[in-house]
């Protein structure tokens, strides 16, 4: 359970704060607090220098109007792993609760979808690392979602693995890219200089495109139903970057007749200190297993057990 600290009073609704500090070979949380609907859980970890926090939400999902604001401080000589439990589900309104208890958070549907917003600010100190490896975000029909994440690294000694991915919706219900808006910003700063600002906007709209046929969001993202962006930076991930680059260079594309089930690309940033990897796949499991393979070397840092928590099906 989350630790109730005195400062919890100061945290707004949906707010949270994680502060990790090195204490001998262990990592302690000098702060770990959150308020509804955000929930932070930290299971005990045996790996020296590493701490794990699950970012959860009550009811397993977020609804229109929810605002999550998480602030994270990764102290020197600590590695913080942030995971979720199952995909982050974004509803337009709280399911089965349209008129009653959740009324203060859900608003009239006549006003159109109200946006759900998650912001995360992370400070990554010298000789520390952040591994942000959540399950993908799944936006349900008509949902609208903003995610703004900022990562501040210190010099050449801090590292980050940042995974941000989105699925096309609830396939079992026939949802395929039918949410209203998904907006995701990832900023990476190194010593006060912004080196990455990755902004993805997926918006579905019905417009007059005459004389051309309608082109919906699903048409331009087909045949894939899962898109992932992975940003790697710092000394701890150099071996991963090297092996991904080596694998990428062996690919030689001849004329294909149909798209493959999964495609990926990689581009270096800051003279190879980091990279941006993008993956698209026909199903989420395929993308997950690709990511799991690509990041297998993280086992050495975060322990096999924790790696499995992140990438097991």
């Amino acid at each position: 359970m989350s630790v109730v600290s005195p400062s919890i009073q100061k945290i707004d609704i949906g707010g949270g704060r994680i502060v990790s500090r090195s204490h001998g070979s262990a990592v302690v949380f000098s702060e770990l607090s959150s308020t509804y609907p955000l929930k932070l859980l930290s299971p005990r970890i045996t790996q020296a220098g590493v701490a794990l926090v699950y970012i959860l939400s009550y009811g397993g999902g977020l609804v229109g109007g929810d605002r999550i604001k998480l602030s994270v401080d990764v102290g020197s000589e600590t590695t913080l792993v942030l995971l979720s439990q199952g995909s982050t589900k974004v509803f337009k309104t709280r399911p089965g609760n349209r008129a009653s208890g959740g009324a203060q958070r859900t608003s009239c549907s006549s006003l159109g979808p109200i946006t759900t917003t998650q912001t995360m600010d992370v400070l990554i100190s010298h000789n520390s690392a952040l591994f942000l490896l959540p399950d993908p975000v799944t936006c349900f029909r008509s949902a609208s979602y903003n995610q703004i994440q900022t990562f501040r690294l210190s010099g050449d000694s801090s590292s980050a693995v940042l995974l941000d991915w989105v699925t096309s919706g609830r396939k079992s219900l026939g949802e395929e890219w039918v949410f209203s808006r998904y907006y995701s910003v990832n900023e990476v700063w190194v010593d006060g200089k912004k080196i990455v600002k990755d902004v993805l906007l997926l918006e579905d709209s019905i417009e007059d495109t005459k004389p051309l046929p309608q082109r919906r969001l699903g048409d331009k993202l087909a045949p894939y139903s899962c898109y992932a962006t992975l940003i790697l930076y710092g000394p701890l991930v150099q071996n991963i970057i090297l092996s991904l680059n080596a694998e990428y260079e062996t690919i030689s594309v001849f004329k294909m007749n149909v798209p493959s089930d999964l495609i990926w690309s990689i581009s270096g940033i800051s003279d190879g200190k980091g990279c941006v990897v993008r993956v698209a796949g026909k199903d989420t499991e395929g993308v997950k297993s690709w990511l799991g393979n690509a990041l297998r070397k993280l086992e050495d840092v975060m322990s096999i057990d924790m790696y499995r928590r992140a990438f097991s099906a």
Binding site: D198, L200, L201, L202, K220, L221, I263, S265, R278, V279
Partner: peptide, 15 residues
Amino acid sequence: GPATTWPLGEILATR
């Protein structure tokens, strides 16, 4: 503000 709206095109252009 400015944003990428077509991740598929991005991957293929990179490749």
